[in-house]
Write a protein that binds this DNA or RNA. Structure first.
Lengths: 230, 230
DNA sequence: CGGGAGATTGACTGATCTCAACCCGGGTGG
DNA sequence: CCACCCGGGTTGAGATCAGTCAATCTCCCG
């Protein structure tokens, strides 16, 4: 555990948005108290919670979604190592408007609200980096709005697969490095599970994709791009 | 014109996110060169443009939207006096991902990118305020994603009317302070013009809303909230 | 082996889109 | 002064995409 903390510390200072700080400035961060591990299936925070800060993902994958009417939910994004979650509510001070759920074993570093706000004021480069993260997310959200409003399910499913590839990559056999349930793919594309399944089967019939275990294999990236109108 | 600039300057320093600065710090801002007026119907910037900074709206209403396939477009928001537009691309340095269009006579103050970036670094309170704006927009975008994906057109139309009321207010007769074309209401709700018209007529039949000239009158706010599932 | 979660398929339904016709009011040129 | 035109707004009919419900299947696990 001691070593783990050592590593996390060096990770923070070298590879994350905290690289803008010196060792001294970072002493504000009582890391030991705010290093959390959670099991697969654990809800990290819930829509409506007041959260005490934001989380930097040190290891694992987190599903971020909003719950809707009767059991349906809309997935906004999958966050992975190096990403931060919960920072929107941390900044605005509002309740969380999403739920974060650990898809696998996940380690998190909690950065408390007071610390964040203080660091923003004291370090412009850090503030700018946070702004860039927020603005990038905003751009992606805007894209998603247009896509859900205007594209067909078929197009959206193709697009989702491309996005997963961009976010998580593929191995040498073009197999996605992430395994999702059909329901999750559906809720990412904003459709029902059955409809998503039908579209996936169709893409498989056409040879554009394949299934290897629980994972999707991308046979024809170009065609997928075309189908997704991208 | 001299007086107009005088007013704009005092507006900036007292009522906007620039209130965090002193008169001296603000001398960076060569206001005279960056005060723009544009007529109704003018495109302020286009999707794909590189923009030189963001715009603070001093007077008028601006439609912000993304264009999609064959003539359809998705309206993301209407920005009005005191709002800023184009700041996402200003921060990320990417091309604009939306188009901004003046719905009426509009006056803008351009804040150049270099100035913004400098001010962010020098003034934490300003950076934090920008962050809050970005995060608020992000929260709204997330809501919109879920709504378009899960709500029916009827629900969305009701919601759009409520949002317009919140954003622009009503006069003493409960008439919205903004007049939109049917097409605009449709593209705000993410549906076709004809469908939007049908839903609006239905709401009128039910007595929940009425039409006065080009404007919508809200007869029954409560029911509208209920219909919109809010 | 039984149970349960997730995946798949079929059949049906219905909300929404599209196309096309028509209306209405304002502005304009002859 | 009037016929025409044009940008919206409205309505109808038909086509279709996608959601729902229900049955079945396939693993995987205890």
């Amino acid at each position: 555990m001691e070593e783990e903390l050592e590593n996390a510390w060096s990770y923070l200072l070298n590879d994350t948005l905290f690289r803008h700080f010196t060792n001294e400035e970072m002493l504000e961060l009582p890391l030991k108290d705010y290093f959390l591990s959670c099991n697969k299936g654990k809800v990290i925070y819930n829509e409506g919670d007041y959260i005490s800060g934001f989380y930097l993902i040190y290891r694992g994958v987190v599903k971020v979604y909003k719950t809707g009417i009767d059991g349906k939910y809309q997935i906004l994004r999958f966050a992975k190592e190096g990403d931060i979650i919960g920072f929107r509510s941390t900044i605005t001070g509002e309740k969380a408007c999403t739920t974060a759920y650990a898809l696998e074993e996940t380690d998190l570093i909690l950065i408390r609200k007071e610390v964040v706000l203080k660091l923003i004021k004291s370090n412009g480069a850090f503030a700018l980096e946070l702004l860039k993260i927020a603005c990038t997310e905003l751009g992606e959200a805007n894209d998603l709005i247009k896509d859900i409003a205007q594209k067909t399910v078929r197009e959206r499913i193709a697009e989702v697969i491309i996005h997963l590839k961009l976010g998580f990559g593929t191995d040498k056999n073009h197999i996605l490095n992430i395994a999702l349930k059909r329901e999750e793919i559906a809720n990412l594309a904003g459709t029902s599970t059955e409809t998503a399944i039908r579209q996936l089967s169709e893409l498989k019939q056409e040879g554009v994709i394949g299934f290897v275990g629980k994972k999707i294999k991308i046979n024809d990236h170009e065609t997928l791009l075309k189908i997704g109108n991208m």
